[in-house]
């Protein structure tokens, strides 16, 4: 592999995974915090709150996964190599 392409791929992978996790990380922290707050206020609705949180986290974390896919493909199956 061309050293320039290799270096650019590693840099792109690092930037890709780093930037793509910022938004989901903030959103997941916010959602989990609010859910725990909600459970503390209404313990009788614990199951419903946890269920909604599970659905929200599953969709939020997929944004991280998209970035992760790009980074891993650049590192292990680079189409420009």
């Amino acid at each position: 592999m061309d050293p320039l392409v290799a270096a650019a791929s590693v840099l792109a992978a690092a930037l890709g995974i780093g930037i793509s996790t910022i938004g989901p990380a903030l959103a997941q922290g916010n959602a989990a915090g609010k859910a725990v707050e909600g459970i503390a206020r209404q313990p009788e609705a614990e199951g419903k709150i946890r269920g909604t949180l599970l659905l929200c986290l599953a969709f939020m974390e997929s944004l991280t996964i998209y970035g992760l896919v790009i980074a891993l493909v650049l590192l292990f199956a680079n189409p420009f190599a």
């Binding site: 009788e44 609705a45 199951g47 419903k48 946890r50 269920g51 599970l54």
Partner: peptide, 14 residues
């Protein structure tokens, strides 16, 4: 029974 049963049902359903 109770609200957590709903959560486990959701988990199993998914």
């Amino acid at each position: 029974s109770g609200s957590m049963a709903e959560y486990y049902r959701l988990k199993q359903g998914l």
